[in-house]
Computed example of a mutant assay.
Amino acid sequence: MSQQIAAQQTGANTKTCLIVEDSEFDQERIKRIMNKSFQGVFVAVATTIEEAREHMARYQTSIILLDNHLPDGTGANFAMELAENPTFARIPIVMVSDWPTPFMFDKADSAGVIDVVNKSDFGARYIHNALNYSVKPKRVN
């Protein structure tokens, strides 16, 4: 994860996009979309779920762009974990995956993920939708 990017955050009103993606190619592609369409949004990158947890423990996160296939687990399971944590349940998540499966869609839906999109179809509209979405916390019974 780029501590340098995260350390540059200037205030509580600054929006931060956390990209959780292990492919450098896909990281760069998503960062280009962010930089072109969303000035004033800091971008941090985590290559594993553990790095994402570390980032979120230290910095406020406004949106998460989450791959499903990561070296230390699945994004769908991580989304479920976040949905069950009151501190993180309101953060909008967009899953960006090479091969979205029905099982992944079901888990993502249960976790309150806003969109599940194929990487080849991913664009600024999904980020815009997530940044303007009011996530409702998951009910814990």
Rank of each mutant, 00 (worst) to 15 (best):
A130E: 02
F105C: 05
K136Q: 11
S23T: 10
E21C: 05
A89D: 12
A57S: 14
Q8P: 00
A108V: 13
T48K: 05
L70F: 06
E50V: 14
I64W: 05
K36M: 10
D109M: 10
G73C: 08
D26L: 10
F103G: 08
L82F: 05
A83C: 08
A46V: 12
I33C: 05
I33L: 10
Q8A: 11
G112M: 00
G75W: 04
E24A: 14
F122L: 06
T74S: 13
M34A: 09
G40V: 09
V20G: 06
M1C: 08
L65A: 03
V116I: 12
P137M: 09
G123W: 03
P137V: 09
E51M: 11
E84V: 01
A76K: 01
I127T: 01
F42L: 15
G73V: 12
M104E: 15
T48V: 11
D67F: 11
V113P: 00
H128V: 11
L131T: 08
I19M: 02
D72Y: 04
A130F: 03
S37R: 11
L82A: 05
S2L: 13
Q39L: 06
R53E: 13
V113E: 03
F122D: 04
N129R: 15
A111L: 07
Q9N: 09
A6K: 07
A57C: 10
E24T: 14
T74Y: 02
N132H: 14
N129K: 15
